[in-house]
Design a protein around this nucleic acid. Structure first.
Length: 882
RNA sequence: GCGGGCGUGAUGGAAUUGGUAGACAUACGGGACUUAAAAUCCCGAGGCCCUAGGCCGUGUGGGUUCGAGUCCCACCGCCCGCACCA
């Protein structure tokens, strides 16, 4: 067998059993040892199989918060575990460093965004180092490093040449507080995602990434991402929003404004026979054109636009409309005409900005029809009920069979889906329209009117248009001398920066002053980590070798934006030859938040550090430590500055050490769920750290100087029992870590710790038991190493082992200890547990049945009756039916 | 409204995926050690019945099964995402 290397420590190294583990001393010591040995520096040409673990990199706000601690601890456990398992692990860290807060700080505190950002990075790096993370710091970069955004500009120009970036004049979401454009994804309930201000619509020329070119591919790719949460895949699917329907024209009875017909898109062509009106968006070209000489319509359009995005308007959901007086021919019944309305609920952005309304089979259309006295025409009924539609539209499931009336395709009874397909075929055959796939996804506008971002490397020339900056002139650097005295873009206000010569014709021209959306920065950083010093954005060999990221860990708030953009970038980089990776993240894990109770006094929210809790459960009360004021205990919420329910990570690490913080973050709550921060929980975690240290010392102190560390030839039952517990624990911890079920690993380690403690007090002096105990604590600290690396190193050294635990290969479990020869099978009678029986593991069904029926308690329970049936599930359970 | 998820002791949560419900931890109670406290160690604990022993128990009601926290149906409650998407 392969036991751990067990050199008996010399007597001089003994400590008294009462000495407490001192993380403040031990943690920096071991961190220095790892650094000296360059344990976490990763080489690209290492021959071992690769494993890439990545946590979403932080924005350098200035402080590491407890959510970061949880995120990076999880990643670190995986990284350390995989390293022990023989993988060449890439585990880098960087900074998502461009963005608004730096400019806000500049305006408020008169600091340069660059200075502010790099100071914050310094501070946060120091905080991360204290956590003992197994990061390769040689690969660190910030997205605001010239070195990084230079390469991003190369990518931009390459995308431009490949037709993946274009310039579009379009209506954009304008944030009037931040003075910038927002992507649709950044508008939440009609408000800017960061400022919370009501978003306005403006016409602006924008640079857009043509993410829609990949709509289908981004959708298809989701099917392969088995190691992603279904929830995230569903969210992305809905966001891309593919639908299949019919694109068709409704001929105008008298052509107007140069239009012969109104183009509509519908996913329910099966309801075509029931069409009773046409509705178009206020922004529809026809509506706009008519408004030129119709002031009432102009007023209506303006009114809709004004209230269009506000929450109240959406909630009221009043179906408002304006009748244009125009009519179109019904495509199925040419002698009938349908009126054309402008309606507030039609979106110009989706489909063609025009629909036909079928009130009988769409609730929204029905509401509109009822309030504007439009006809309701049934086109199909349920098979057993032909009651006409009254106030509820009849919208059956598409797979439900229904009975059609007046259907053009000759359909009488069919499912909705069959009718849809038949109608599309019919419409195509008649030349009325075409089947069409439609996506909800829209192109990604990346222009931002900000200073602190990656400059868009383009020069606008009056003769040549928008000309990309040639590679030899890159990078386009941000100027340092900018002022934030007035609103708007400092780059635009800069006296000289924007003036340049056209790279094509040499005439005076103007630089693009917009910078890129910061989501661009985070869309390819994972690829840059694979070769962070390269002159090109990536080195294909390195990127292809490391990517995809095997395990990506971060908050679910990035489920759509960041992850979708990154998936687009991987495809675009593949198309432009920068790497050959389609899906950048193989495994994704979205961790829960760290939450805390809130406390409120008459002067507002109070920090937990100043709150004294008395009593328990229902009778708990909170008191202000300084003023003695009674405080209200509020709900448990995400830690935020506004609620002041923030726990400072430095305080925790100073008081208890990084290992305690790490251990607590992994305990109890499943990693995907929210964890409630509690002082009692932290205390409990710290108690365990101390207990393991004590246990290790007790075992060392029980070891005589002349201890023979060769494995004994045989073990007592007690020693074997302990070894079984430990080896099973090691096996199970590995399984759980693979599944990221850290809370279960923790529980198993507690279990094993208890078992070691019991064995020590009971039989600590028998030589075979002592050997087993030394093996047990060695394996215990090894299993804990990914989670509590400092403590584990200290214990490892204390046990007299040489070398760093951080570089030790994972111990192979002794398989012979995983299984028992005999099993304790529960015996049920009529499904209720009535006893247990010990049987040989290899016993077959008949043997088990015979043994059970011969069992004393069973005989007693049966009291002479013959069982009707005996169900034996081998190695599980026995159930007797009487 | 649509889509997804969840509901287990005082609390966070386990439960080999249909096979001994409540592992492990927190809080609590009792004991040991101590002049005392802290620390540590040991013991107890789902509810009910006086006990032996038994009955009940995983949001509620029903079903499938030898056997259901787990599967099916209906309902109740909570959480998350999207939302006038044609």
């Amino acid at each position: 067998m392969t036991g751990p290397d067990m050199t008996a420590p010399n007597a001089a190294s003994r400590t008294s059993a009462s000495e407490r583990y001192n993380p403040q001393k031990a943690e920096p010591h071991w961190q220095a040892k790892w650094d000296e040995a360059s344990v976490f520096i990763t080489q690209n040409d290492d021959p071992r199989p690769k494993y890439y673990v990545l946590e979403m990199f932080p924005y350098p706000s200035g402080r590491i918060h407890i959510g970061h601690v949880r995120n990076y601890t999880m990643g670190d456990v995986v990284a350390r575990y995989k390293r022990a398992r023989g993988f060449n692990v890439l585990h880098p860290m960087g900074w998502d460093a461009f963005g608004m807060p730096a400019e806000n700080a500049a305006m408020q505190h008169k600091v340069h965004p660059r200075a502010w950002t790099y100071q914050n990075i310094e501070a946060m790096r120091a905080q991360l180092k204290v956590m003992g993370l197994s990061l390769d710091w040689t690969r660190e970069f910030a997205t605001c490093d010239v070195d990084y955004y230079h390469r991003q500009q190369i990518l931009f120009t390459d995308f431009l040449k490949a037709g993946l970036v274009t310039r579009k004049t379009s209506r954009v979401n304008w944030d009037p507080v931040d003075h910038t454009v927002l992507a649709n994804e950044q508008v939440i309930d009609g408000r800017g995602w960061r400022s919370g201000a009501l978003v306005e619509q403006r016409e602006l020329a924008q640079w857009v990434f043509k993410i829609t070119d990949y709509a289908q591919d981004l959708l298809d790719g989701l099917d392969e991402l088995d190691d992603w949460p279904d929830k995230v895949r569903t969210m992305q699917r809905n966001w891309i929003g593919k639908s299949r329907g019919l694109h068709m024209g409704f001929a105008l009875t008298s052509p107007t404004h140069g239009l012969e017909a109104i183009e509509v898109y519908t996913t329910r062509p099966d309801t075509l026979a029931g069409a009773s009106f046409i509705a178009i968006a206020p922004e529809h070209p026809l509506s706009q054109a008519m408004a030129q000489d119709n002031s009432e319509l102009a007023a209506f359009n303006a009114d809709v636009r004004r209230s269009g995005t506000s929450e109240e308007a959406l909630e009221k959901a009043e179906k408002r409309g304006f009748e244009t007086g125009l009519t179109v021919k019904h495509p199925i019944y040419p002698d009938q005409t349908l009126p054309v309305w402008v309606a507030n609920f039609i979106l110009m952005d989706y489909g063609t900005g025009a629909v036909f309304g079928c009130p009988a089979h769409d609730q929204r259309d029905l509401d509109f029809a009822r309030s504007h006295d439009l006809p309701v025409i049934d086109t199909y009924f349920a098979l057993d009920d032909d009651t006409p539609v009254a106030n509820e539209a009849f919208v059956p499931d598409k797979t439900e069979k229904v009975r059609f009336v007046n259907q053009p395709a000759g359909v009488e009874v069919a499912t909705g889906q069959q009718a849809i397909d038949a109608t599309i075929d019919w419409a195509e055959a008649q030349g009325l329209g075409k089947g069409k796939e439609q996506f909800r996804l829209r192109d990604w506008g990346v222009s931002r009117q900000r200073y602190w971002g990656c400059p868009i490397p383009v020069i606008h020339c009056e003769s040549c248009g928008a000309v990309p900056v040639p590679a030899k002139d890159l990078p386009v650097k941000l100027p340092d001398d900018v002022s934030f005295d007035r609103p708007g873009n400092p780059l635009d206000h800069h006296p000289t920066w924007k003036h340049a010569q056209c790279p094509k014709c040499g005439k005076d021209a103007v630089r693009e002053t917009d910078t890129m959306d910061t989501f661009v920065d985070s869309s390819w950083y994972f690829a840059r980590f694979t070769d962070p010093k390269a002159n090109t954005p990536t080195v294909a060999e390195s990127a292809n070798g490391w990517l995809p990221v095997d395990q990506y860990i971060g908050g679910v708030e990035h489920a759509i934006l960041h992850l979708l953009y990154s998936r687009f970038f991987a495809r675009a980089m593949k198309a432009t030859g920068h790497m050959d990776i389609r899906e950048p993240f193989k495994g994704l894990f979205t961790q829960g938040m760290v939450v805390h109770e809130t406390y409120k006094g008459t002067d507002g929210w109070v920090e937990p550090a100043k709150v004294l809790i008395e009593g328990e459960d229902d009778t708990r009360t909170a008191k202000h430590m300084e003023t003695g004021e009674r405080l209200e205990i509020g709900s448990v919420e995400k830690m935020s500055k506004s609620k002041k329910n923030v726990v400072d990570t430095d305080d925790i690490i100073t008081t208890y050490g990084a290992d305690t913080a790490r251990w607590f973050m992994l305990s109890d709550s499943p990693p995907e769920r929210d964890v409630i921060w509690s002082d009692a929980g932290v205390e409990g975690a710290h108690r365990h750290i101390q207990r393991v240290w004590r246990l290790v010392n007790d075992v060392v102190n029980a070891t005589p100087d002349d201890f023979d560390d060769t494995p004994p030839g045989s073990f007592s039952d007690d020693a074997t029992a302990l070894r079984k517990v430990i080896h099973r624990m090691l096996n199970a911890v590995a399984d759980d870590v693979e599944k990221l079920a850290f809370n279960r690993s923790v529980a198993r380690i507690y279990d094993a710790t208890n078992a070691i403690g019991r064995a020590l007090t009971k039989h600590g002096d028998a030589p075979d038991m002592l050997w087993a105990l030394r093996e047990a604590v060695s394996i215990l600290v090894e299993a804990m190493q990914p989670m509590t690396p400092h403590l584990s190193e200290a214990c490892w050294a204390r046990l007299g082992h040489t070398g760093l635990l951080a570089t030790k290969p994972w111990t192979e479990v002794d398989r012979s200890l995983l299984d028992d020869d005999t099993l304790l099978l529960p015996i049920q009678v009529n499904g209720k547990k009535r006893g247990e029986i010990s049987v040989a593991k290899t016993a077959d069904k008949d043997a088990v049945e015979a043994a059970v029926l011969a069992d004393e308690t069973v005989v007693k329970l049966l009291a002479g009756q013959a069982p009707k049936r005996v169900i034996v599930v081998p190695q599980r359970i026995v159930n007797i039916v009487v």
